[in-house]
Nucleic acid binder design. Structure first.
Lengths: 131, 131
DNA sequence: TGTATCTACAACCATTTGGTTGTACGTTAC
DNA sequence: GTAACGTACAACCAAATGGTTGTAGATACA
């Protein structure tokens, strides 16, 4: 699944920062499962309503949650797409790692070739994955 | 791929917090690609050596990077496993989202059944995925 | 209408964060 | 041996973070 990752560095900062708090992660979990008002969410935590309200605001800024007015309430709904975005970002890092391994393998293959026979420019195309 | 996610909430805090800074993310990228000493890394950023040193320490605490002494240098190496751990955590959130959709589908199917015929306790087992 | 509920937001406070400079210490190189 | 290099770490500072209380505006309900 390709996710359009047109995020500024500041956006990514906000995304991971929002995830870097256990209360906020729990709010994400809950609101991904069952949408709830802020006051309903606040009942679950040992802190003031205003504190929970701030956490929801941080999550909303990061795109991990959306708020929808319903009467006097604000219904909080988790946004799975933002989770996908975060995963896509991490995929890029794993890709960097994998290409590094490939480069190392290619280098190793080249050296091995140089040791056994001599310069044969076509080295192994499919480098075996190492550890 | 199943990743053993035996992390405390504080560990997860550290992991995502470490990722919530563009300088640190860049250090992760670099060190996943090419291992480098701290002073080599420091050349790339418009801040003091000590500041980069602190960023590396934060990354090391989070497990995103390891340090290895080589002479007077400390070689920084990115840890792809930690990236995988973070992705596995996010997968759990997506799983919550998916099971919520399944529940909604099941509920909808049940209501539809009740509307068309009358009480038939065995509702559809395989709920169709919606949107 | 009046009251209770839900939310928004400001002001405040303690702690953490992200940066700095300075000093000390082990290692490398001349 | 001495000078230069790479690192560790402490002390300091401004800004951000995570919490609080208090006040005020909408909305629901008796």
């Amino acid at each position: 699944m390709v996710v359009d990752t047109s995020l500024s560095e500041a956006d990514v900062d906000r995304l991971f920062h929002a995830l870097a708090d256990s209360t906020r992660r729990d709010i994400v979990r809950r609101s991904l499962s069952v949408e709830a008002s802020i006051s309903e969410l606040a009942l679950a935590y040992d802190m003031s309503f205003a504190a929970v309200q701030k956490h929801v605001a941080v999550l909303e800024e990061a795109g991990l949650v959306t708020k929808h007015p319903r009467g006097r309430e604000r219904i909080v709904r988790g946004n799975a797409a933002a989770i996908g975005t975060a995963k896509a970002l991490l995929d890029k890092y794993e890709e960097i790692w994998r290409s590094r391994i490939d480069r190392l393998d290619a280098l190793l293959a080249q050296h091995t070739t140089e040791d056994t026979s001599c310069q044969s420019p076509q080295s192994r195309r499919t480098s075996p994955r190492s550890r």
